[in-house]
Design a protein around this nucleic acid. Structure first.
Lengths: 342, 342
DNA sequence: TTGAAAGCGCTACCAA
DNA sequence: TTGGTAGCGCTTTCAA
């Protein structure tokens, strides 16, 4: 059906090998021959069969990416950046969305193994290390994105989550908040780290979270956390004393929380200051523009792409390395209670 | 490196063929043999090499998707839904983000051809039909998503854009708007269709767009249209008479437009009603919750997946078919100027 | 500078 | 029920 090297070779009275060499810019080919071959390739609209090539070379020129939710702008951006960066070097990206389901994720990783991708990247919802042991067994290089796993010494690229929590909490304190609550995420490293940073800063100010002031984002399934943030904030608003500042695990949950606050007739930031994390592109357009910790989404994607390309080329495994990205705060109306200090 | 059929066959004193048959659940295999083989496969953590299989069968079990901007929630949702749907049937998805660049898109389509994916899906930023002629030449089935192309008789799945424009415009008229402006999108079928619907409804009410009341979203590069919407709205606000309603090409541009309106001290919807399109998940959380035309994102993804699976199986090409999805309006505060009629 | 032979891991076909 | 042979389209190696 599709044109093959053989067709071109026959047309031109050459051998398949010669044509193959032209295809790959092999040096020892006569200028005239090369020209003829290239011309014929163009005429026939020839595309080399990458599956066949992969079978011989062992390289698929394909990378794999598994994220928990491709619709979440954070992961969408990472996917987009990686895809764009690696394309420049001839690689393509298989993308899977695991829906935060460890079983689905494991299945997707198995797919990636069967497809012999050159590098696997995962933002994992996994509880166990089994999937990663399997990857290691096949000697396929892999990178953990955003979320690290206990007991797994692997390449990791993500934000410094403790710094995220610290930054947000410190900011709220500076804005005069004294009863700072936290809406925490699920049991993955990001949520744990942010909680840790929050606790650490409070402690350093001799403060301590009041009872009921750390509440969990329920796993509301498909949603990114808007619903969970709403519900969590309702709980917080019912506590006494009421918090005067909330650090939310991420921006969607912060959006939900802000809605709950506004619905209850309170003002942001006067009655309650809110800080999120992710600095999503629409933060500026919300009812109250949202202060958020920026985790350098694009940076994460770019570094992941660069590392992956590096690993795809190297045959010898390198020592796993963790790249922690420093977060920074973007202050907007949702937390601005003091005049900016100079 | 990785385990092969041959390894398992040797271990068990069987032929490769027999093992291969077990792998594919071929009926005529002894129960005992099957059990032994499966056991050994599990032990060795065997994954069939799909590249090798693809070479023989001509099927890659891979579908390709090209979108203009994976970070745009509309396309992110389509990508996610398709990926999720096809996985159930053993297919994986290669995703590319073309950045609205026809040249990049053409390149990505060429990649997909080289990779012999079973079906190609494209939300195209193309001006010419060349890429699609190439796809046709290779006899790879393809589906156009969201945007159709003039003169190309192809499978298409997307919203009925004229209906989108009509729905939005009619709604604004019902809300008492009399000078309805339109912020139109770039020169692709979606923008053209929505403009057409807008014009048609105005005409049916014996209205006509005032001079300067149709303004173009500039191509502000990477952005989804927030910036373009802002700039476009500024232009509209400077016209006399000023519009009292704006139908925006999509939600991001509507967000930008609303910001411009608020910045200029006008009220939404009292002074100016705004309607967007896309019904993105955060529409509810904006400064003024945004009325938007829902184009059935999930539905588009599901139908695309179903059609693609169908095409991947069939060897015989079917007649191209267009599936138009009927949009519906989601009314929120940004346009609600009248009490709901009963 | 060119090409013949071998083989990548798997499946299709047909014979035992 | 099992397996030998051939071959998918390409690259690698080595000889001409």
């Amino acid at each position: 059906m599709a044109t093959r090297l053989k067709d071109i070779a026959q047309d031109l009275g050459l051998s398949v090998v010669t044509v193959s060499k032209v295809l790959r810019d092999h040096p020892d080919i006569g200028a005239e021959t090369r020209k003829r071959v290239l011309k014929r390739m163009k005429e026939l609209n020839y595309h080399p069969n990458l599956a066949a090539r992969a079978l011989v070379t062992g390289q698929t020129w394909t990378l794999g990416l598994v994220v928990p939710d491709l619709l979440h702008p954070f992961f969408a951006e990472i996917a987009k950046v990686i895809s764009t960066e690696i394309r420049k070097h001839g690689y393509s990206l298989l993308i899977y969305s695991s829906d935060e389901d460890p079983e689905l994720e494991a299945q997707e990783i198995r797919q990636l193994l069967a497809r012999r991708v050159d590098v696997i990247m995962v933002a994992s919802a996994q509880w166990t290390l089994e999937s990663f042991r399997q990857i290691e067994e096949q000697k396929i290089p892999y990178i953990l994105l955003d979320r690290s796993l206990q007991g797994l010494e692997a390449n990791f690229i993500g934000v410094d989550d403790e710094a995220v929590g610290a930054l947000a909490t410190e900011h709220l304190i500076e804005q005069g908040c004294r009863r700072i609550a936290h809406i925490r995420g699920p049991e993955v490293s990001t949520a744990v780290g942010r909680l840790e940073g929050y606790r650490r800063v409070l402690a350093s100010y001799n403060m301590t979270p009041m009872p009921g002031h750390i509440v969990s984002l329920g796993s509301s399934g498909d949603s990114r956390g808007e619903r969970g943030g709403y519900d969590a904030a309702r709980k917080l608003l019912a506590t006494k004393p009421r918090p005067d500042g909330i650090f939310c695990f991420n921006d969607p949950s912060a959006m939900g929380a802000m809605r709950a606050i506004i619905d209850s007739g309170l003002r942001i930031p006067e009655d309650l200051a809110v800080v999120g994390c992710g600095n999503l592109s629409f933060s500026d357009f919300l009812r109250v523009p949202l202060t958020s910790v920026d985790q350098g989404n694009e940076d994460i994607g770019k570094r992941a792409a660069a590392l992956a390309l590096n690993m795809a080329r190297k045959r010898s495994p390198m020592r796993p390395r963790a790249e922690l990205i420093a977060p920074h705060l973007v202050v907007r109306a949702s937390s601005r209670r003091m005049a900016p200090k100079k």
